[in-house]
Simulated assay, not measured.
Amino acid sequence: MGTSNAYGGAGGGTPLIPSWLQDDGGGAGGGATPPSDGSTPAPATGTPPAVPPAPAPRPVIPAAGASDRFTGARASFSRFASSGGSDRRGLGRAVSRYVSTSAGGSRRAAQRMGSSRGAGAGLVRFLNDASVNGVREALRALNLESLAGRPIEEVFAGLADYICPEGGSIDEGIARDAFVETIADLAGAGMTDIDALTPAQIQTVLELYATHAIEARLCNDIGTKVVTLPADPRAAARVEAQLRDFIQRGVSDAINAAGVNIQALSPDAVTEFVTTVYQSAFEILQTMGDAEAGE
């Protein structure tokens, strides 16, 4: 559960939307280099004094979240985990409180999926390109033509550095780990031939990827060092499977509710579609969580 980049959980006072997921909107101002002795250069004779450049706008500092915003979700998920998966009300409360309180609502929860939204859109765009122009042409565009004709798992593995390059942030680690887990799921989902993927199968790939990404985001935000899984490996596996199934149902409902032919989307429309899927999935997960908890 979670990712190889798991940590002790986000602090309540951290911003709802970290600064590295936002555009800074700033830019460096121009201007002449002052003398090395610190003096102000005199204007040239007959030339009016130069107007100093306007200072660059300061980046907006994201607002800090409430210090206790993770408390309810962590407590509920701990109860679910320690029960070995039998406390479904704990699962429902944990997911609902995570979306509504910890993440600040479905829109902000989707914004927190920065790298995962980009990776999901990149994956769909590649698969759409492959379905229209052929896998070899789609790979050639990425200088990966040597992967043509290889098993689908090898093609996806070769795409990893293009779809979700390695980085140092938790967000980037979540995106890459979700991609790796998606590769492992391909055969079980009946996808063995990348040259013959149908629109329904491309939709399934996105569903698998978004599920893994949301699961990892939730687990990292709750804090893997705070939540203790059962010592019994079978009970721990049940907890993980139930959480993943719960999230996948929400993601699947969100994609189906969009009613979109995924292969008909333009590259720009793909980005908007994937963002909408994440936000809708979080809305649905909150509703599902409330229903599971009986609230």
Rank of each mutant, 00 (worst) to 15 (best):
N5W: 09
N5F: 14
G12Y: 10
L16G: 00
P18H: 04
P18I: 03
D24G: 03
G30M: 11
T33Y: 06
D37H: 02
G46Q: 04
P48D: 11
V51M: 04
V51Q: 14
V51T: 11
P59R: 07
P62H: 03
A64G: 09
A66P: 04
S67L: 14
F70W: 12
T71L: 08
S82E: 07
G85R: 00
R88F: 15
L91T: 10
L91W: 15
S96D: 10
R97V: 00
T101P: 00
G104A: 04
M113W: 01
S116H: 00
G118L: 12
A119Q: 04
S131A: 10
R136N: 10
L139C: 07
A141C: 05
L144I: 09
S146D: 13
I152L: 14
E153R: 11
E153I: 06
V155A: 05
V155N: 04
G158W: 06
D161T: 13
C164M: 13
E166C: 06
G167M: 11
S169M: 02
G173A: 08
I174G: 04
V180C: 04
V180L: 15
E181W: 02
A187F: 11
A187G: 14
A189Q: 11
I202D: 02
V205F: 03
L206A: 13
E207T: 07
E215Q: 12
R217L: 04
R234L: 13
R238G: 03
L243N: 04
D245K: 15
Q248V: 02
V251Y: 00
A254C: 09
A257S: 12
A257P: 02
A269F: 04
V277A: 10
V277S: 05
S280T: 12
S280E: 01
I284F: 00
A293D: 15
